[in-house]
């Protein structure tokens, strides 16, 4: 593969991985400004724990009949949470032994920027313009990450169904809202502990009531800012929301914000890694090449030096040989001369 092709491929991969993230940035901005989103204000000081809201919810959502009837108030002696058969439950809290109990209704809070919708990998959850966070069972895979993500522990699962298990949670009675009706629980409440309206108006009503009775109410509207704000709003008598089993430490950061940093790192990783890795690869390769070249050069130098040495030695040897040869010739000549001289002497003698 040519380097150019390779880089092109990597570039394409990088770009394709970033597209998902741009889509994300747009979606969280859309949700924040739903000006006409509806909501419900729950006033814990008005709730008498009659469970009529539970009964109404069960009826309008056609949920299975509970084991104990709704007028059995002993059910509230143990703390409950929402489950696959009940979208809403009322729990009883006794701040101090002997004091009057306080009640709190639990259901989906219909977050302005829902954790479940942000966490869902098939977009099965949607914050609709009515304010309701609605669920589409027809695409749900059943991974249950929405249940992990929900800071209020609301979504429940039909663990007993083998083929069509669904996530179950309050819909804010979306079908009824679209028909112009009130949510079932709000309509059933005999004490006006529940009030339906536009969220921004409910916030004003809540603050009027709370600041008008500073001795009675905790000076806080729960849900105005928690987890980026929720469509359900709560006001409670003193001493605290924690006395009603509500988490006061959730903070104001919305769920999508908690993960946006990690998602934003995706294009960075997809962009930087190929460059860095091919760079490292190129450096390693170049180092190898340089090492190879140096080795070759060293070998050549060694060979050159060896041959030079050999030549010098040869020359020296030759010279030596020449000297020796000369000397030998001289000796031979001398010997011959001597022999000739002797012969001459002998001739003269004879």
């Amino acid at each position: 593969m040519k380097r150019r092709h390779f880089l092109g491929l990597m570039g394409a991969a990088g770009v394709s991985l970033t597209t998902g993230v741009t889509a994300k940035a747009a979606s969280s901005a859309d949700v924040a400004g739903l000006p006409n989103a509806g909501g419900v204000l729950f006033d814990a000081s008005r709730c008498i724990g009659c469970r009529k809201c539970e009964a109404a919810c069960n009826q309008v959502n056609e949920l299975p009949k509970p084991a104990k009837p709704f007028d059995d108030l002993t059910v509230m002696d143990t703390a409950r949470r929402t489950d696959a058969k009940s979208y809403t439950v009322v729990n009883k809290y006794v701040p101090k032994p002997g004091e009057n109990p306080v009640f709190r209704k639990i259901q989906c809070n219909h977050c302005m920027e829902p954790a479940c919708a942000s966490a869902c990998f098939v977009k099965a959850f949607k914050k609709s313009e009515t304010g309701a966070v609605v669920y589409d069972a027809s695409v749900c895979v059943g991974c249950r990450y929405c249940m992990v993500a929900c800071p209020f522990n609301i979504p429940a699962y039909e663990y007993d169904k083998a083929f069509t298990p669904r996530v179950m949670k309050c819909t804010l009675c979306q079908p009824r809202l679209l028909e112009g009706k009130l949510p079932g629980c709000v309509e059933a409440c005999p004490k006006e502990a529940l009030q339906f309206g536009k969220r921004r108006e409910l916030i004003n009503i809540a603050w009027d009531r709370v600041s008008g009775n500073p001795d009675k109410y905790v000076q806080h509207v729960y849900g105005e800012h928690e987890m980026g704000g929720t469509s359900w709003l709560y006001i409670a008598p003193k001493p605290s929301f924690a006395a009603l089993g509500m988490d006061e430490g959730l903070g104001t950061t919305s769920a999508p914000e908690l993960t946006s940093g990690a998602l934003a790192a995706v294009p960075a990783v997809a962009g930087i890694w190929p460059v860095l890795l091919t760079g490292i690869y190129a450096i390693t390769k170049r180092k190898d090449k340089i090492a190879e070249e140096e080795k070759k050069a060293a070998v050549e130098a060694a060979i050159a030096k060896a041959s030079a040495d050999a030549e010098a030695k040869l020359a020296e040897e030759l010279e030596k040989a020449e000297v020796a040869g000369k000397r030998r010739i001289e000796v031979e000549v001398k010997k011959a001369l001597e022999a000739a001289a002797k012969e001459q002497e002998g001739g003269e003698d004879a």
């Binding site: 998902g20 919708a117 695409v139 749900c140 895979v141 990450y145």
Partner: peptide, 24 residues
């Protein structure tokens, strides 16, 4: 683990929940 495993291809091929870390 997932409730309806035959839908596991959905998030990739049918409807992408790009805001989800689980999608990534």
């Amino acid at each position: 683990d997932v409730g309806r495993p035959w839908r596991l291809p959905y998030p990739i091929f049918y409807q992408q929940g790009t805001t989800s870390i689980l999608f990534e």
